[in-house]
């Protein structure tokens, strides 16, 4: 019985071996030219799983970052004295390099995607918090006074007047956070968090140029697509304000 299984495994290994040699794109790995189209043609499917993992990393980190930072910003909007400590706290989290953050979490969450998501979330907080806070602060006082004057409660003023007017800056913050996170998430490979970084650092080998270019390009394209989608959402939600915040 076990002999059969072993035999099966040996066959699988043989198939696997052939699978890889057949897919080298005609000596792409050996030649290692700057870019080898044959490799891409033979191996495009190996990038599907890392790309999906990357999407999960970025999506989770930006969503969590947005929820936390948005809540903090709303809370600090009511209690203005909290803005300075919140800004300082998120500033520290932003400054600590993600790759360092992964391993500061090592004793607590170990290695894996969760660790990477926590570190990327921590990085995002400041960008989103600052943009939500600035957006709310830039709402003209006469507008909020008028809203109060027609009998709106403070929470109606916040949700129906201030936040819609702050929306372009909120979206601008989300765009910066998302694009930066897509790029940073390539580092998740060092925390065993998966993602496109796994196709850049394959084992101890970082010298296969075509692989680096393909994985890097997927990350750049993903960043551009995320940016375009958020830009579009911003325009749909705030059609009265076409001008986007610059910085």
């Amino acid at each position: 019985m076990s002999g059969t299984i072993n035999h099966g495994l040996a066959q699988l290994a043989a198939v696997d071996q052939g699978f890889f040699t057949d897919r080298s794109g005609g000596g792409c790995i050996q030649d290692n030219k700057l870019f080898c189209p044959g490799w891409v043609a033979d191996n495009y499917d190996r990038y599907v799983h890392p790309t999906l993992q990357h999407l999960v990393l970025v999506g989770s980190a930006v969503a969590a970052g947005f929820l936390i930072a948005f809540a903090l910003a709303i809370f600090a909007h009511r209690h203005r004295w909290l803005q300075t400590p919140f800004l300082a706290g998120t500033g520290i989290l932003y400054t600590i390099p993600s790759i360092s953050f992964f391993f500061l979490l090592l004793p607590i969450t170990g290695r894996g995607a969760l660790t990477a998501i926590i570190a990327l979330t921590a990085f995002n907080l400041q960008i989103i918090f600052r943009n939500v806070t600035n957006g709310l602060r830039n709402v003209p006082a006469n507008v909020t006074e008028a809203a109060t004057g027609i009998g709106m409660t403070p929470s109606q003023v916040l949700w129906r007047v201030e936040l819609p007017l702050a929306l372009p800056e909120v979206i601008a913050g989300l765009r910066i956070a998302t694009v930066s996170t897509v790029a940073l998430a390539t580092l998740a490979v060092f925390a065993n968090g998966g993602g496109l970084g796994t196709e850049i650092v394959t084992g101890s080998n970082i010298t296969f140029k075509t692989g680096i270019i393909v994985a890097g390009s997927i990350a750049v394209i993903m960043a551009i697509l995320f940016d375009a989608v958020l830009l579009l959402i911003g325009k749909l939600l705030a059609p009265w304000k076409r001008k986007q915040a610059l910085v």
Partner: peptide, 13 residues
């Protein structure tokens, strides 16, 4: 949007 890891790796390779 530049992935730092890809930039360093490509530069080195």
């Amino acid at each position: 949007a530049i992935p730092e890891l890809a930039l360093i790796a490509l530069m080195a390779a």
